[in-house]
Amino acid sequence: PSDCGLKALLKGELPAILILDIGGTHGVLPTIDRELLESLPNLKVIANSGVGVDHLDLKMISSFVVKVTNTPHTVADPTADIGIALMLASAGIQVEVHNISISPGMDYCEADILGVKVAGATQGIVGMGNIRYKIAMRAKAFEMNILYHNRTQRNYVRNIGQEEQADSATYCKKIDSLLQQADFVMLVVSLTPQTHKLIRKRELELMKPTATLINISRGTVQIHWLTGVIRALDVTSLEPLPRLPSLSCIVKKLKNIVITPHLGIKTDKATYMITEEGVENILAALNGLPLPSEVLPS
């Protein structure tokens, strides 16, 4: 709910749960502050749809003995799908020739418009966890050389209840090494003080001039997104992007940017499964059971 929606709740019976449909707010995040929590003495759980909880002060919420949950298990596949889709869109010429094809002045398509070969290229994934694994498994289908960087190296991941060797990915201890080698760099990290502005001008300059940066995490993980290497973004620093004529003109003229409006998990099945996972968390909280997807303060 919006801030107005939260206040409206106070007029009726004080709730034991708050459901935050972050995926549907398109950047308009509700304010969960101390004043609100003090007004909700019956509150037991804040159920967040999606994975990211960077909009919540987990330590402050925990001080009110209120639990926070998210839905990490159901978003991995659609998030990996949008990452691969953006990679293909940025590598191919489909977006550009589509715009040319529907242009009123289009007589013919230039024969020298060329895309980038994906098969056999090097995919660099910044981040770990289930989404990274899902992306790597998809990249393997394109016979890509897969690198990853994370604070810790992991040789095994859990998949369908069994321990399996992790997708033949090569660990890069330093992010610089990954940036210098990769043809496609995909950001798959949670927004934390450590990852805020992780990719700056310096990091962009380490990348190959022909490389593509794909961001499916949070917009503020990177800066300087209008210049330099090719960008494929499902997230931006401001969401939605300001509807400024000057900004629109700049983006339209740039051929090295593909943007989608943070809708990577918006598929029919994912939306249904997110709801199911959220309900499981809520019922567990109300019945005093362990929460399947509790998010603890770090």
Rank of each mutant, 00 (worst) to 15 (best):
F184A: 04
F184W: 07
V185P: 01
V185L: 04
M186P: 03
M186V: 13
L187P: 01
L187G: 01
L187F: 04
L187N: 02
L187H: 06
V188R: 05
V189S: 06
V189M: 15
S190D: 09
L191D: 12
L191E: 11
T192F: 07
T192A: 08
T195L: 10
H196N: 14
K197W: 03
K197V: 06
K197T: 13
K197S: 13
L198T: 02
L198I: 04
L198P: 00
L198S: 03
K201D: 13
K201R: 14
K201Q: 12
R202M: 07
L204W: 09
L204G: 08
E205A: 14
L206C: 05
L206D: 04
L206T: 01
M207T: 11
T210G: 02
A211G: 02
A211M: 05
T212C: 14
T212D: 02
T212A: 09
T212I: 10
L213P: 07
L213A: 06
L213V: 11
N215I: 05
N215H: 02
I216Q: 05
S217H: 05
S217A: 15
S217L: 09
S217P: 05
S217W: 07
R218Y: 10
R218H: 07
R218W: 10
R218V: 05
G219F: 03
V221E: 07
V221W: 04
V221Y: 11
Q222V: 12
Q222K: 02
Q222W: 00
I223L: 02
I223C: 12
H224S: 14
H224Q: 13
W225G: 03
L226N: 12
T227E: 15
T227Y: 07
V229I: 12
V229F: 00
V229M: 04
V229Y: 00
I230G: 08
I230A: 13
R231H: 15
R231G: 00
A232C: 09
A232L: 02
L233C: 11
D234M: 08
D234R: 10
V235R: 06
V235N: 08
T236C: 11
T236A: 07
T236W: 00
S237M: 14
S237E: 15
E239A: 11
E239C: 06
E239W: 12
P240C: 08
P240M: 10
P240R: 10
L241Q: 06
L241N: 06
L241W: 01
